[in-house]
Amino acid sequence: MGNFSKTFSSSLGKKLIMSLTGLFICLFLVVHLIGNLQLFKDDSGQAFNSYAYFMTHFTPIKVISYINYAIILGHAIYALILTISNRKARPIGYAVYNGSANSPWNSRNMGILGTIILIFLIIHMKDFLWEYHNNTSLPYARYEASLADPQNVKVTPLAVTDKEYSHVDYVDPQSQTHITVAKDLYKLVRDSFKIWWYVALYVVSMVAIGFHLIHGFRSAFQTVGWDHKKLVPIIRFLGVWIFGIIIPAAFAAIPLYFFFCK
């Protein structure tokens, strides 16, 4: 075996993969949240639908998203490999085990939390990403606004008929209007989050992500060996407040906003 394959098949090498893939997913969450904040805009989804089109059709973004799927999958597969190896390391368990005396609950149950997140991801990607690409009955929306008064947007839902629409985004020079026709992912989001159990699924999953990241974020830095008295308090703060609480809470706010306010 070569140096690199030997390194990454060692216990520390596998942990390094867990840590780096985990940190990449943390970065993805930040970008994903910033994009999704456009759902809060009161514009009948013009900004969000344009953004969704851009994210799924701009080649560099598409490349990064495939890398992202591979990294999420890698994180899950390596977690499984490590869990199996950890189980093998203790074939006979303890009759009495008092784990709460020496470690926090979420740190001992990263696998359970991760499994909840993985199931959520499958549902989430099927219901939005897959539907967006493959559901031909998804309606379009047409947004019109004159350049003189860009705030005043006229929205026309385009129901699905035999006629096929395609994405357009241009300024008509004669009428001086900005016209956008986009697949209405916003409507799909809004309609999905009218179902109470679907909202509950999202909120519970975000709580799981929060607990996963409260341990995971700082744990990733420990694994790469970045541990210093001066830096650890900052990493812990970011891990608990930004990645453990604020980001999952902001994600959870989206279904709650649509359920209660729309």
Binding site: S11, L12, R90, S107, M110
Partner: peptide, 21 residues
């Protein structure tokens, strides 16, 4: 580390139980 892996010990998940005990 190579010997540790060969002995069949598990992999650290940074729970901190070792430090506490």
């Amino acid at each position: 580390v190579a010997q540790m892996d060969a002995e069949g010990f598990g992999n650290c998940t940074n729970t901190g139980a070792c430090e506490a005990e």
